[in-house]
Computed example of a mutant assay.
Amino acid sequence: MDPITAVTHADPYPYYACLRARAGLVFDPGLGLWLASSAAAVAAVLAHPECRVRPPHEPVPRAIAHGAAGRVFARLMRMNDGERQRCPRAAIEPGLQQVHGEEIGQRVTALLPGLPNDLGARLQHCQFRLPVAVVAGLLGFSAQQLPAIAERVADFVACLSPASSQAQLDAAHRAAEQLSRDFTALLGQTPGSPLLQRIVKGFGAEDRDTLIANLIGLLSQTFEASAGLIGNSLCALLKDRHLLAELRAAPSRVDELLAEVQRHDPPVQNTRRFVVAPCTVAGVSLEPGDGVLVLLAAANRDPQLNPEPDRLLLDRQARRSVSFGSGRHQCPGQALALSIASAVVGALVRHSNLEQPLGWTYKPSLNGRIPLFHPLPESR
């Protein structure tokens, strides 16, 4: 196992504990990257101004640099530092914080009748398509448009993975072009949805291409992060039938489950930072061009961050987590993501036969931990 293959391993956490025991930043010659695995080292890297989200020589991945997906990527706030990150964030974050959980629950409920009957297909739809449909609906797309928007987002997110094939990249470029047209049409409608109005107002003089790119980014971030969070919460329930029974008896505890799962088995296991100037981080001297693999999942289970870190405790006191990042790049939609995932998992607990024997494998990924469910052979 290495820090990349650990992401999709059945249980990577003992391995992460071994990495943490080495403390500080440790160089991995096989990957050619520094590893930050302890809570202190992860916090230091995420906070350091010389550790950026993209290498200066390659602000957009070469594979998509000359297409529509690359043009969107170049403007995403989460793929930039400085003003190109701060300005879009300042426009989008306040609007997201004003979305109420009650409205999210209503939108999830409205989408439930369209779910597949097959349990495996139902779970996958709830992981990937349903959260995107909720956010797209909040932005003002009609119910009839939601399935197509979700499919285009699914195609677009392929461009974010270095492991994507040329066919997937071609589909991502087409999806980026169509999503740009979709948002251009949506922005031409008046009045827009309350959320869209707040975001547009926040952008002020920002150019329309940056606005549209970050609206696409809002949907693309929803896609895989929600899929992992919902999926890993379901894994926790499938492993512990007593916990499933507890949630059915006390549905309000679903929020506590999601809050703990995002710490205990997070959907995004690692992220990267690239050094742009000589600096010292966690006691290690770094040079321009150095890369750091930031092991968020390892830090979450650092005893310095949370006592009894390997236990999944719904009533955990003073829970601390870096799953959504920290500092200037902390996810602006954290509360929204947790609300959507909570509503979806709550609906599945109430309305799906989770007693059916299910297995899962993890979607191939370099940083996302996303289970894909399937019926076990003996259950057929």
Score class of each variant (00 low, 15 high):
residue 1 M to W: 00
residue 3 P to M: 10
residue 9 H to G: 02
residue 9 H to L: 06
residue 14 P to D: 08
residue 17 A to V: 04
residue 18 C to Y: 00
residue 23 A to V: 04
residue 23 A to T: 12
residue 24 G to K: 03
residue 29 P to F: 05
residue 29 P to N: 12
residue 43 A to F: 03
residue 43 A to Q: 08
residue 45 V to R: 06
residue 52 R to D: 04
residue 53 V to P: 00
residue 54 R to P: 01
residue 56 P to H: 07
residue 59 P to T: 04
residue 65 A to G: 14
residue 70 G to K: 02
residue 71 R to E: 13
residue 77 M to T: 08
residue 77 M to F: 10
residue 77 M to D: 12
residue 78 R to D: 11
residue 86 R to W: 00
residue 86 R to Q: 12
residue 98 Q to L: 08
residue 101 G to R: 11
residue 105 G to W: 11
residue 106 Q to N: 11
residue 111 L to I: 07
residue 114 G to D: 10
residue 125 H to P: 00
residue 128 F to Q: 07
residue 130 L to I: 15
residue 132 V to K: 04
residue 133 A to K: 15
residue 133 A to H: 11
residue 134 V to Q: 05
residue 136 A to P: 00
residue 142 S to D: 08
residue 143 A to Y: 01
residue 145 Q to P: 06
residue 146 L to Y: 07
residue 150 A to Q: 11
residue 151 E to D: 15
residue 152 R to V: 03
residue 153 V to S: 13
residue 157 V to F: 03
residue 158 A to K: 15
residue 163 A to G: 06
residue 168 Q to I: 05
residue 171 A to V: 07
residue 171 A to E: 14
residue 173 H to G: 01
residue 175 A to T: 08
residue 176 A to T: 09
residue 178 Q to K: 09
residue 178 Q to I: 03
residue 182 D to G: 02
residue 182 D to S: 14
residue 194 P to F: 08
residue 196 L to A: 11
residue 198 R to F: 01
residue 201 K to L: 08
residue 202 G to H: 01
residue 212 I to H: 01
residue 214 N to S: 07
residue 217 G to H: 09
residue 232 N to V: 02
residue 233 S to T: 09
residue 233 S to H: 06
residue 233 S to K: 14
residue 241 R to I: 02
residue 243 L to N: 06
residue 252 S to M: 01
residue 253 R to V: 03
residue 262 Q to G: 00
residue 265 D to S: 03
residue 266 P to L: 08
residue 268 V to W: 03
residue 271 T to L: 13
residue 272 R to I: 01
residue 272 R to Q: 13
residue 275 V to M: 06
residue 275 V to S: 01
residue 276 V to R: 11
residue 284 V to R: 11
residue 294 V to F: 07
residue 295 L to M: 09
residue 299 A to N: 05
residue 302 D to Y: 06
residue 302 D to N: 06
residue 304 Q to F: 00
residue 308 E to K: 03
residue 313 L to R: 11
residue 315 D to F: 01
residue 319 R to Y: 05
residue 325 G to E: 05
residue 329 H to F: 05
residue 332 P to G: 12
residue 339 S to H: 02
residue 341 A to T: 09
residue 347 A to N: 07
residue 349 V to A: 01
residue 350 R to T: 12
residue 362 Y to C: 02
residue 363 K to S: 03
residue 363 K to D: 15
residue 363 K to P: 06
residue 364 P to N: 12
residue 366 L to P: 10
residue 366 L to H: 02
residue 372 L to M: 15
residue 374 H to V: 11
residue 375 P to N: 08
residue 376 L to Y: 14
